[in-house]
Design a protein around this nucleic acid. Sequence first.
DNA 1: GCCAACGTTGGC
DNA 2: GCCAACGTTGGC
Length: 209
Amino acid sequence: MPSTSTRRQAAVILSAAGRKRKAANTAEVSESAGSPVFTCWLMKSEPESRFENGIDVKFGIEDLKALPNQTGCWDGVRNYQARNFMRQMKEGQQAFFYHSNCKEPGIAGVMTIVKEAYVDHTQFDKKDVHYDASSKPDNPKWSMVDVQFQRMMKRFLPLSELKKYHLQHRANGGPLKDMALFTRARLSVQPLTSEEFDFILSLEDKEPL
DNA sequence: GCCAACGTTGGC
DNA sequence: GCCAACGTTGGC
């Protein structure tokens, strides 16, 4: 969790350049730097086999759980915004493990960030699906973090249910009205406000909508 | 398998 | 720096 105290009401913040801009949402805003500080995350991965250049890209929450120490590196992110969010992650923060591109998409469990961003070695590996010929070892483009399995959700939270809440909250107000999963659909690593995170956790104890 | 949304690339 | 073409994501 962040060492600086946070404000949750602030919607207008000051960028480093000193220009006023609107925060993406009512996320936490740091006292000092003036950029939004996110503390919770959602990370997507595919739990079902799919072959890319002859290589299976399947990696579901069960695969993470099966690794030594239930810990693995989140490699292969090749999108700048997703990468930048990973670079903001701090050790000890929590992230939802989201299952995408599968029969039942949704949130499967919770993991912990156990190592902050470092060079993703797969960008230099010609055999890797996510090899990037344009990235040079003296100036690597892509980063990854290490994540550790924390727990399964008490019940799987399907995208369809989250979407119902999102639509409801968009109409009448509520914590999921701006959730990145819906407003930034293709982003594979996304920030959640603590309000979004806590609300989603509260759904575990509710009946499916 | 379809295709909408959207990020990236590259010509100009 | 614009923007059309292209490629990818990911729900359905």
